[in-house]
Design a binder for these strands. Structure first.
Lengths: 328, 328
DNA sequence: CTGAAAGCGCTTACAG
DNA sequence: CTGAAAGCGCTTACAG
């Protein structure tokens, strides 16, 4: 395949052995300049491309990275995907993409990653069943949980410092003079939402500021609906901390629909700093999540574990920062 | 690898030949029920997974599909990705994901797809250089251009019927009583924007309705800026047809900023029907692009060409429909 | 239905 | 630096 031409054909045309062709293309071996030139010329003429499968069969290594993403509605989806693809391509790796709808990845979801002997795996916005973790560990495949973590991790995760971020958000609102607040949560079983709630409510409690918790789902519709219910109940606080931006936009639209002035009557702050947050109609104050930096840490962990598998576990948290706009 | 265990190990434990193990896992061959059971039991015990690389080396086939996407800003990005991933996974194929920034895919961009002998390739929102087309054809790899087409195609493309859609949009606006109109284009070199402009302006010309063309870039900021310039020039038409939804949202926000009432003072219609178009703050009238159906056609072409390569070329266009909301 | 053997296209000791 | 040869883990005629 690939023109049907292989290293032997190139060798014949170049007048060298097949081993020499292999040495030219694999690298690391010493080949005379003369041989190299002959081989390259012959390869060019025939349109030779080394067979990656034969290669992997021998070296027992692949240059494939499994990327498992959950949920199209994650506002970072495109950016995260782009970051990983770009980084890994530069390093000579290719992305095997898997989409899942499960909160906890099941074995079936990633069976193909095992089939293809991926060199590493990144999982975004979902957790892993113990069975799957074992599977990866048995095969010495490094795994990173991206933007998610678990209580007692036996693997490596990369995220942002949600606890500290939401404490600072609370502090910022207190300093703005807000006397009572609401937290609108994301999907309840996610570590991100839980941590943001924790940091926010702790800081508020420390400062004796009353607050209420409302549960929603990280979607625009969820934010809109939750805010509307709050408004209709006549329960409008002096500030909302909404667990992510896309919900915050829903909250803003619900407030606008009811002609409640932001930031005069109530304030809104989101989390993520998605593109839309900067749109003039929204101008949302929010907390920027350092996606690029998070991706970089993820890539460097995977690469170092590919080079030498140490099964290092832990949780890296990158700090983000407050982006102040017009809703506070 | 993969536990380091291979078909020979399974054979030994099961007390059969390695060929029998292979027959059980490859399928299509006849194996006695007794042998099958012994093999399966042994495989389960050892945690055996067939090596996909050895397999591909022999069969000269892979179950890999290359998906090349351009531009994170395509509003369909997540949905398209999800559709393809889901469909192909069900069929036993895995997605090799490539991200590019080039309008015309270059050989370097897809070299890895050739390395991995992908069974098929889908390219969204970009075109192909002749050199790349040749490369795929030489290797008998079916390719689909998704949401893009070229004048004289020598390959297969799937899209929506932009010409007819934009004619109907024009007709709809004429019937609404609009006396002069504006078309705000997307990126100028894209077939989608060119076709939408063509259908729209042809229908308008046929009905002797005056119109102006403004060039933009398919982005929110582009739509916002272009609309603002039009407003400041005092050139407000009775209707805008904006080449995609994300730009149309920018146009709406620019109009809102200048307190120009939609749909009373001017009307706006987009193209795509992205999620945000339905948000209450926008309520954008638009043309729904039948993404799911387009994806289905793409998958079925690829699969049929994998089964039997015929190098069939052509352009499939799926019809969408008008979604009337509050901006017209 | 089953086993022994050839061979897919490579990499990599080994010997020179 | 270079070539001949072994072998990676499979599939697949071939013979029985």
């Amino acid at each position: 395949m690939s023109n049907g031409i292989n290293a032997r054909d190139v060798a014949k045309l170049a007048g060298v052995s097949q081993s020499s062709v292999s040495r030219v293309f694999f690298g690391g071996a010493s080949v005379s300049e003369k041989t190299r030139k002959k081989v390259l010329a012959a390869a060019e003429e025939l349109g030779y491309v080394p067979n990656e499968f034969a290669r992997s069969l021998i070296t027992n290594k692949t240059r494939l990275i499994g990327l498992v993403m959950k949920g199209v509605h994650n506002p970072f989806y495109p950016q995260v995907l782009q970051e990983f693809t770009t980084h890994f391509n530069e390093l000579g790796y290719t992305i095997l993409f898997v989409h899942t709808n499960h909160d906890e990845i099941q074995k079936e979801d990633i069976e193909m990653l095992l089939h293809y002997h991926v060199a590493g795996v990144i999982i975004t916005d979902a957790t892993l069943s113990l069975k799957v973790i074992e599977e990866f560990k048995n095969n010495k495949i490094p795994v990173v949980l991206f933007n998610r973590k678990v209580e007692e991790p036996n693997f490596f995760s990369v995220g942002t410092n949600n606890l500290e971020a939401s404490r600072q958000i609370a502090k910022f609102l207190i300093e703005k003079g807000c006397k009572d607040m609401a937290y609108i949560s994301g999907a309840r079983n996610t570590s991100t939402s839980i941590e943001r709630e924790k940091g926010f409510s702790e800081m508020l409690a420390e400062n004796k500021v009353p607050y209420k918790i409302y549960h929603s789902d990280y979607s625009y519709d969820g934010g809109f609906k939750t805010a509307k219910e709050i408004i209709q109940a006549g329960d409008i606080p002096s500030a909302f901390f909404v667990a992510n931006d896309i919900m915050a936009l829903g909250v803003l639209d619900a407030l606008r629909e009811q002609s409640i002035d932001v930031p005069a009557k109530t304030k809104v702050i989101g989390f993520d700093n998605i593109e839309m947050a900067a749109w003039p109609i929204y101008n949302l104050t929010t907390w920027e999540q350092p996606i690029a930096q998070m991706a970089k840490e993820t890539v460097s962990y995977i690469i170092s574990e590919i080079e030498e598998y140490t099964d290092r576990i832990g949780n890296i948290e990158i700090n983000g920062e407050l982006i102040e706009r017009k809703t506070t």
